[in-house]
Simulated scan of single mutants.
Amino acid sequence: MSSLDIVEAERLKASNLFYRNPWLYDSVQADSDSARICRALIDQHRPDARTLLDFGCGTGRDLEQLAQHFDCIGVDLQPGLVDYSRRTHPELDVRVGDMRTVRLGRTADVLVCLGNSLAYVHDNAHIQATFQTFAAHARPGTLLVLCSPVAPIESPSSQQAHVETRLGAAAVTITYEWDLRTQVNTMCRHWVFDSGEEYRDTIQRRVLGPRELELYVAQADFEVLEILNEAGASPVLGPGAYTVARFLQ
């Protein structure tokens, strides 16, 4: 990793409680069906797929489920998440890498970028670079499945959620801010555990509207097949939408 990659990884780690405690993320994600949704989309659009690359694989939770059906490699910017994934899922091939620049020297039938990973890339040039990474690992017919917000949350009042974690039960107060100029949706979370421990973290996600997302997809020689909302998204994790595209070259 370059020095800039390390700085970016540390910045994200400092801002997100899940990056500092990956087992907590897995605990909160226990009921997530993102891998199931991803698999259904692959079955619909590329039923013959055998190989898969996961950019922004995090703790490896989704990758572990997808690896039951595909030959997979996962990549994530956070060394701590990669280390956790290797310890909890030693059968997986998980590597440290920045999805804006990483080159694995191979292509795959399916590329996935789940967990709103794309939304952590805010700069336009870096978003383009990320899509070029997708293109560099694609061949004609390669399927791209993205999960990323396509509309902001603008809530005048705070939201409350109750979650069960390995630290015990927690009450989470969530507030949102929306910066129209930068298209960044900021989610602030205040965690209060039954043990009395309290944590605060701040998540900033770049929102790409459907037409803007389609433009980035087209610039990288993919075509959008469909964009659909994620039903039943967790308030603690925030919303996302699934974009499915096919590589044309």
Rank of each mutant, 00 (worst) to 15 (best):
D83S: 10
D83A: 14
S85K: 02
R86D: 05
T88L: 11
H89F: 13
L92R: 00
V94P: 03
V94Q: 07
R95Y: 07
V96A: 09
D98Q: 01
D98G: 02
T101C: 08
V102A: 06
R103L: 12
G105Q: 06
R106V: 13
R106W: 07
T107G: 08
T107H: 07
A108E: 01
A108Y: 02
D109Y: 04
D109L: 09
V110R: 01
V110D: 04
V112N: 02
L114D: 00
N116Q: 07
N116C: 08
S117G: 04
S117F: 04
L118S: 04
L118K: 01
L118A: 05
A119I: 01
A119C: 07
Y120L: 10
D123E: 13
D123F: 05
D123V: 12
A125K: 12
I127F: 02
I127W: 00
Q128F: 13
Q128L: 13
A129D: 14
T130I: 03
T130V: 08
F131R: 02
Q132L: 13
F134T: 01
F134H: 00
F134K: 01
H137V: 06
A138N: 04
A138W: 00
R139P: 03
R139Q: 12
R139L: 10
P140R: 10
T142R: 01
L143Q: 01
L143K: 00
L146I: 09
L146Q: 02
C147D: 15
S148Y: 06
S148T: 14
S148W: 05
P149R: 02
P149I: 06
V150L: 11
V150W: 01
V150A: 14
A151H: 09
I153A: 08
I153E: 12
S155N: 11
S157Y: 15
S157C: 11
Q159S: 11
Q160I: 15
Q160Y: 13
Q160L: 15
A161T: 03
E164M: 12
G168N: 03
G168F: 05
G168T: 03
A169L: 10
A169S: 13
A169M: 09
A169W: 09
A170I: 03
V172T: 02
V172E: 04
I174F: 04
T175L: 09
Y176G: 06
E177K: 09
E177G: 08
W178I: 05
D179S: 11
R181C: 11
T182N: 08
Q183A: 14
Q183Y: 06
V184Y: 00
N185F: 09
N185S: 12
N185A: 10
T186G: 07
R189I: 09
H190N: 15
H190L: 15
W191I: 08
S195R: 02
E197T: 08
Y199F: 15
Y199V: 11
R200W: 15
R200E: 15
D201R: 02
D201V: 04
T202P: 03
Q204F: 10
R205G: 06
R206E: 09
V207S: 03
L208I: 04
L208Y: 00
L208H: 02
G209Q: 12
P210R: 10
E212I: 11
E214R: 10
E214Q: 13
L215Y: 15
V217P: 00
V217I: 12
A218R: 13
Q219Y: 10
Q219F: 12
A220K: 00
F222N: 03
F222K: 00
V224M: 09
V224Y: 00
V224E: 03
E226K: 04
E226F: 00
L228Y: 09
